[in-house]
């Protein structure tokens, strides 16, 4: 049996006095596509932000490909990971954000070349070729020299995906990537995610409000409620029938 790609062990997270996550246990298998749904404030985003090292868990541990993400061994004791350790472990993880977060002072092409050149020490020519290949893949091969301010929200989000893909992550995190988009731009972004998912190599975690989409591409759906995984299963299990009242009332709001 395959080892899990990512393992959450009793992960808690508090912001001040508010405990957002109350003990998350979760295994993500290689190439597994997991959709995380749930009411706002349930801690969905916090889960993937901790995996991306943007947020430190209050307790518990996260294991990525066998390595403890937030802790490291120092003279026989486990201590909070330093920047160097985080960099070593998070190299296989990529993330796409709700608000794109493209670098506004760089062209589309530069957005996708900077990290490979500076982080992975790739040479400029191969980084450029790879960036163009990925931008072509997301349908933006003709926008290379544009700046982020010159393209639409849907295009920005597709650039953000190309920017993450050039780093060849084994795990891709999607944080409500269509929530900030005008309705007519949502589909073009979902289309790209679908393509990536069908290639199948990456572990993907999608925090989303697009229920149809989650049902479509996810192998497993997690329903997060009040800081715990309240329900999980295959899309048909979770979306089909459920004895969980909270899940039921949550899903009913998405049905007409």
């Amino acid at each position: 049996m395959n080892e899990p790609m990512v393992k959450f062990k009793d992960v808690h997270k508090s912001f001040g006095d508010v405990e957002v996550l109350k003990g998350i246990n979760l295994d993500l298998m290689p190439a597994e596509k997991v959709a995380v749904i749930g009411p706002s404030g349930s801690g969905k985003t916090t889960i993937i932000r901790m995996l991306m090292t943007l947020e430190q868990p209050t307790s518990g541990s996260i294991i990525v490909d066998g390595e403890n993400l937030w802790q490291m061994e120092k003279s026989g004791r486990l201590v909070t990971a330093n920047e160097k350790h985080l960099r070593q472990v998070r190299g296989d993880i990529g993330m796409v954000f709700q608000h794109f977060n493209l670098f506004p002072h760089m062209t589309i092409l530069q957005n996708c070349m900077t990290a490979p050149i500076h982080v992975k020490q790739e040479n400029k020519a191969s980084a450029k070729a790879r960036a163009i290949e990925m931008l072509d893949k997301v349908g933006l091969g003709d926008k290379l020299d544009n700046y982020p301010s010159q393209i639409s929200g849907g295009q920005k989000q597709r650039v953000a995906m190309a920017r993450a893909l050039v780093m060849r992550p084994k795990i891709m995190l999607f944080d409500e990537v269509t929530s900030a988009l005008d309705p007519e731009l949502v589909e073009e972004v979902l289309e790209v995610i679908r393509d990536i998912a069908h290639e199948g190599r990456m572990t993907m975690v999608l925090v989303t409000h697009e229920m149809e989409f989650a049902r479509d591409i996810a192998d497993r759906v997690l329903f997060l409620d009040k800081g715990v995984i309240a329900e999980q299963g295959t899309p048909s299990e979770v979306f089909g029938h459920s004895e969980n009242e909270r899940l039921d009332s949550f899903l009913r709001r998405f049905r007409r």
Partner: peptide, 13 residues
Amino acid sequence: GQTEAATALNMSR
């Protein structure tokens, strides 16, 4: 979000 995006690309501080 700029710092976060850069972190997600594994840039150093």
